[in-house]
Design a protein around this nucleic acid. Structure first.
Length: 225
DNA sequence: AACACGATCTACT
DNA sequence: GTAGATCGTGTTG
């Protein structure tokens, strides 16, 4: 019965620098029970949100009722509602008392795809989990999971020893401050990554891997008054 | 007690 | 390409 049971990542994995955890979560497998069915997805894109010194982090201005989970013990889920519509899923990092969390931005579905499709019907499989709000819908993750442990069959991360992929480090997406920080990580060439890095971004914040590739005609800047 | 805004996605032009 | 949906949170009065 337990032969398929893999080891969940230990507390010590998460109790480290948030950026290291964000990078090392790439390639790991998120397991989640949806509607009584086991699902598995590979983590292909993450972002690090620190505490002090990171203006884009919810914990930047100290402990608040919302950000309290980020200051708590590691390996817990930090789930919050964004834009009044979407839930975003993070995993708390750092030692207790020090704020930090990794936003899970994109997943590659591996198993249990039908269970996920039941939560989020899509025509193209790519649209199932290629965004932070899409994946929480597909995996039925909501605010009820805020503060709950990440490390069980219901919600956990295991290592299936995937290797051999290139990691791209780039600026985070959708934030208005802290764009000079390269705290976004994704697997090069993976088609489930939410957004490819575009040359229009900060010049000093270049990704570390993968050629810039074809420049598309959509970096036209908007005319300012 | 009231208000401005955001770690997004979808639909429509 | 752009707008609209939609509400919890933090800040201000």
């Amino acid at each position: 019965m337990n032969m398929d049971k893999r080891r969940f990542l230990p507390l010590d994995f998460y109790r480290r620098d948030t950026r290291v955890v964000a990078r090392e979560l790439l390639g790991k497998v998120l397991v989640r029970t949806v509607g009584g069915l086991s699902t598995r997805c590979r983590i292909v894109e993450t972002e690090a949100y620190l505490g002090q010194g990171d203006p884009a982090s919810h914990s930047y201005r100290g402990r608040t009722p919302r950000s309290a989970v980020m200051f708590g013990p590691p390996a817990r889920a930090y789930v919050y509602l964004n834009y009044g519509l979407h839930y975003l899923f993070n995993i708390v990092t750092e030692e207790e008392g020090r704020a930090g969390a990794v936003l899970i931005r994109a997943l590659e579905p591996l198993h249990g795809i039908e269970a996920m499709m039941a939560q989020r019907p899509v025509a193209d499989i790519v649209g199932l989990t290629n965004g932070p709000a899409k994946l929480t819908q597909a995996l039925a993750i909501n605010k009820r999971h805020n503060g709950r442990p990440v490390g069980s069959a219901e919600l956990g991360v295991v290592d299936d020893c995937s290797s051999g992929f290139e990691v791209v480090v780039a600026p985070r997406i959708g934030i208005s401050s802290g764009q000079d920080l390269n705290y976004r990580y994704y697997i090069a060439g993976n088609r489930f990554v939410s957004k490819p890095w575009s040359p229009g971004d900060c010049e000093e914040a270049k990704p570390t891997k993968q050629s810039p590739g074809a420049v598309r005609g959509k970096n036209r800047k908007k005319g300012l008054v």
